[in-house]
Amino acid sequence: MIEDLIAMEDAFIGWLTALEPVKIADIATVVALYAGAFFAFVGSVGLLKLDTPMKRLHAPTKASTLGVGSLLLASMIQAFAHGSGSVHEVLIMAFLFVTAPISANFISKVNLHREDADPTPPPPGDSAWATFDTHPADDRTPKEV
């Protein structure tokens, strides 16, 4: 029993020492690459598969952004493992994650404006949703545009 445990411990230590930092970084890179590829793909599958414009908005804005984020992470780990470290990928990542909600918000406003979405419930506290609150002079049916 005890010999078994000692043997297991030896095997574990041997396994740990065989894993050099570079190897661990490579494994992390591969995991990040597969995750990124998977999420980018799922984002587009959702874009094609879902049936209403508002539902379609869900898949690409989030999954694709996370996919690119993962690929950038892979690129960063790789740069640190092999020589020169590089952190400027963080900049693209931050930019994408900050702008994705804004794009999504604008596109959903377009869907509301063109009446491509389900009818909306009325806002409890105020008179209207901001997209529908237009100047009377701008009034016309959206489909004419």
């Binding site: 980018a40 587009s44 694709s64």
Partner: peptide, 24 residues
């Protein structure tokens, strides 16, 4: 129109992914 804008936006994000992969 919303779908087309969304598709273009997704294509830009995927193009960035391709560029990053090319760099890797």
């Amino acid at each position: 129109i919303g779908d087309r804008i969304l598709a273009l936006d997704t294509m830009v994000v995927n193009a960035i992914a391709l560029i990053v992969l090319l760099g890797l």
